[in-house]
């Protein structure tokens, strides 16, 4: 009797939690019809914001992969003096409030910032440019990729890399032929998370890059700017972001299952076989 009561209670709590998380999302789509959503895509504000968001996000993610992957590999495979400091540094932007990140970027790369005069000498001014948006996105989103990549590299079986080396493959070849395929699921999952975080970037962008249609106004900034003028447009842009996030979450799921399967294979290849 008591057990049934507890089960009932847990179910109710679960339903309340799920409803709480799902209702606002449902409300976005309840306010607008698919036709409205598609209509709004021809609204120049919406279209420009989508283009700016995708462009800056893609460039930022490419940079994150290029710089983040070797960094993560090094941090995952080597232990050196200051290792834990490096890990903390990598994780810091993750917990930093976006507004603080924006101020920090201004203090570093703004015209009067630490590197402002150096950049000025090179003829570069970052604030209010699309580069600034990309930097803001890369800054706040990279920890998500690097963390996941470190975990993925740590999870690869060292026996496999060792075997590859004893069979005559150099470190570079081993990395690309053995380590990378083994870790790819985790890397994709990390990329999906960091992409989603980057698309949603608001605070650091508005402080460091400002907001100008077609240049620095990303989807979240356009949602904020249009909120008082065109509620339909903000709903459409929110809908687009929700759909993108769902797609990225699905990518994450697929990535994670992909990561699991190669490690299972390794169990059969090198570990004690379950059949004895």
């Amino acid at each position: 009797m008591k057990r049934a009561l507890v089960a009932c209670f847990v179910t109710v709590v679960c339903v309340v939690t799920l409803a709480f998380l799902a209702l606002p999302i449902v409300a976005i789509f309840a306010h607008t019809t698919p036709g409205h959503l598609i209509d709004q895509l021809s609204n120049p504000v919406v279209r420009d914001a989508l283009v700016v968001s995708l462009k800056t996000s893609l460039i930022a993610q490419a940079l994150i992969v290029c710089f983040g992957t070797p960094t993560a590999y090094l941090l995952a495979t080597r232990r050196f003096f200051g290792h834990s400091v490096a890990i903390t540094l990598v994780e810091l932007p993750l917990v930093l409030p976006p507004a603080v990140a924006g101020i920090a970027l201004l203090a570093a790369f703004g015209r009067l910032g630490l590197f402002g005069s150096t950049l000025d000498a090179l003829g570069l001014t970052l604030p209010f440019t699309q580069t600034a948006v990309t930097i803001a996105v890369a800054y706040v989103a990279s920890p998500l990729y690097i963390r996941q990549a470190i975990a993925a590299f740590e999870a690869t079986d060292p026996n496999l890399t060792a075997a590859s080396r004893t069979l005559g493959a150099g470190p570079t070849r081993t990395f690309f032929r053995v380590v990378l395929p083994l870790a790819r699921g985790g890397l994709i999952a990390g990329l999906a998370l960091s992409f989603a975080r980057g698309l949603g970037e608001f605070g650091a962008t508005i402080m460091f890059a400002g907001s100008l249609q077609r240049v620095t106004q990303t989807l979240p900034l356009a949602i904020y700017a249009e909120f008082d003028r065109n509620f339909n447009a903000t709903l459409a842009m929110s809908g687009v972001l929700v759909l993108l996030s769902v797609a990225l979450l699905l990518g994450l799921r697929i990535g994670l299952t992909w990561q699991r399967s190669p490690s299972k294979r390794s169990l059969y290849l090198f570990g004690p076989s379950p059949s004895g």
């Binding site: 508005i206 400002g210 907001s211 100008l212 240049v215």
Partner: peptide
Amino acid sequence: VVSRETDVREVLAK
């Protein structure tokens, strides 16, 4: 114009 801010104090701050 390089940025359109959300209120006058944001303009002032920049």
